Amino acid sequence: MVARPLRPETAPPQLPRIVGGFSTVLADPPWRFANRTGKVAPEHRRLDRYSTMPLEAIKALPVSKTLAVNAHLYLWVPNALLPDGLEVMSAWGFRYVSNIVWAKRRIDGGPDGRGVGFYFRNVTELLLFGVRGSMRTLAPGRSQVNMIETRKREHSRKPDEQYDLIESCSPGAYLELFARHKRAGWTVWGDESSDDVVPRGLVHKGYEGGPILPPLLPNEHIDLGRAEVLGERLRTMYLAGQSVRQLAEETGYSIQRVRALLQAAGTSMRPRGRAPVPELDLFHVLE
């Protein structure tokens, strides 16, 4: 059977301009992988997460015409496409000077090993940092470590912590390219940045982000107050649709522990589709 064509490509709209130009640009281009017809390709009809662009089209965007004489660029790039990211940075008028690593964490703080990769399981993503002209980072940047450690969210969505980091280290005016959400104090450009557009990736099952829960040893004692706090966080995720097994995989807690914590938070459990198990001894499991 012949596969239907992917979403048709359209010419990108004009980039925004301001008097004096933008001093800081954040960009998360819709990179196109070589296997774009494969089932994990972002624009594959099975997923339709977002449209992608070929490398030459990304490079051809007239970003340099929107910039101040001196400017910073923060450019997201997948590990496999690092050479492409450096090409784009150069084409837009920046020179590469450093990078920030996004370490994707599970809810227990460990590396989230559910990323993709043909050679290694990717648990990091790179935010390349480039400079146009001559401009150092602001004073807070001199003590800012080049790592962000947070949980993953919806497919392709980058950590919100990036904005505070960028705003503290680089001056405005700020421009976000390929934006999918508005942000106060920023000019945004992208086909999903309008308030009346729901990003296509949001309709697909993904991660909701949120706080990282502490790791627990298999037989670690938990007092009732702490159990209720952990249970409330798990309850929110459970009511949002995650199963007990998924919560166990994400937290590193045992299935029995997850069930006990959910009970501690007064969670009404969904039917499991098989014969019920004997009621758990809550305090025995918590200990």
Results as ranks from 00 to 15, higher is better:
R7D: 03
F129L: 02
G225D: 14
F283T: 15
L261W: 09
G113E: 07
A41N: 10
G109S: 04
T236G: 14
V123F: 09
R270K: 15
S90Y: 05
V116T: 11
G201C: 01
L138D: 10
A275W: 10
L127F: 12
D84K: 06
G201Y: 13
V19N: 15
T236P: 00
A57G: 08
F22D: 06
K65Y: 02
A179T: 01
R121P: 03
P13R: 05
W186F: 06
G206D: 10
D160T: 07
A91Q: 09
R142H: 11
R180G: 04
P199C: 07
A41I: 09
G141V: 07
L230S: 11
K104L: 11
A71M: 13
V198K: 10
R121F: 02
G252D: 08
R153G: 01
H181C: 07
P83T: 06
V97W: 08
G117S: 07
T124N: 13
L213D: 03
V40N: 11
S193F: 07
H44S: 10
R105E: 10
Y238L: 09
R226T: 14
N146A: 15
R132S: 02
P78M: 04
F120C: 05
D281E: 12
R226E: 07
E149M: 14
L73W: 05
Q144K: 15
V131K: 01
S23H: 14
L81W: 08
A173P: 15
G117M: 11
V19Q: 14
G21H: 00
L86R: 08
A264C: 15
V63T: 01
P218V: 06
R121I: 02
R36E: 12
D108L: 02
G225M: 04
A265S: 13
R226K: 09
R4T: 06
T187I: 08
P271M: 06
H181M: 05
L126H: 13
Y238N: 07
P159L: 00
R183E: 00
E287Q: 11
G231D: 04
T150K: 12
L247Y: 04
S194V: 00
L217R: 14
R132V: 02
W92V: 08
T150V: 12
K152Y: 06
Q14H: 07
D223A: 03
R136Q: 11
S168A: 15
P111K: 00
D191M: 09
W76Q: 14
Q256F: 00
Q263G: 13
L216I: 02
S194W: 04
R245K: 15
G117P: 12
K39E: 10
